[in-house]
Amino acid sequence: MPRFDLSQFYPLTIAVLTVSDSRNADNDSSGDLLCQLLQSAGHQVAERTLLPNNKYQIRAVLSQWIASDMVQVVLLNGGTGFAAGNCSVEAITPLLDDTVPGFGELFRQLSFNELGSAALQSGALAGLANGTLLFAMPGSGGACTLAMQQLILPQLDGRTGPCNFVAHIKNSPSQRCGA
């Protein structure tokens, strides 16, 4: 029976959601950045959506992606800060089966090096829902770059040891290979 090969890269199918009351398809630079980084790493962008800070609209789109057999990972940027109107964290939290506390903790720690104590206002979080891995990060380009390069992309690569998230998501290579 074939095993999950830890020396192989397995491209994942990923959806990108930008949450913003001021951005649109023409100026969503952080969404553009996330898609570019994903594609450069070898992953496939399955869908991309931009929504306002409305927890019910956010939940509706996320619920569709979580229920889909196609979407393995969701990257959400924006609406995670401690500011009036931001609702990404409260939109996502009830949908999660399991949380990944280390993502938010490490993101804030890394952000502290650049922002100082303002980093504690970040609501960055991650978790699993129906085998779909979700990451929520601030919407600034710097925050997206930090999260992607230092935390997310390494964990979306089956070659990263001693562990990564590839084996934990739906339709993962480990499930396809019978490991």
Rank of each mutant, 00 (worst) to 15 (best):
N53Y: 04
N53A: 12
N53V: 08
N54V: 06
Q57A: 14
Q57E: 15
I58M: 08
R59C: 12
R59T: 13
R59Q: 15
V61P: 00
V61D: 03
L62M: 11
L62D: 00
Q64T: 07
Q64F: 00
Q64C: 06
W65P: 00
W65V: 01
A67S: 15
S68G: 03
D69Y: 00
M70A: 01
M70F: 00
V71G: 04
Q72M: 02
V73F: 03
V74M: 02
N77K: 04
T80P: 08
T80D: 08
A83L: 11
N86F: 08
S88C: 09
S88K: 08
E90A: 03
E90W: 03
A91N: 05
T93F: 09
P94D: 13
L95Q: 13
D97G: 08
D98V: 11
D98M: 14
T99Y: 12
V100Q: 14
P101I: 11
P101V: 09
F103S: 02
G104Y: 02
E105Y: 04
F107T: 07
F107L: 12
R108L: 08
R108N: 09
L110A: 07
S111R: 03
N113Y: 08
N113P: 00
L115W: 07
L115N: 09
S117K: 13
L120R: 10
S122F: 03
G123P: 01
L125M: 15
L125Q: 10
A126S: 14
L128R: 10
L128G: 04
A129L: 06
A129Y: 05
L133E: 04
F135R: 08
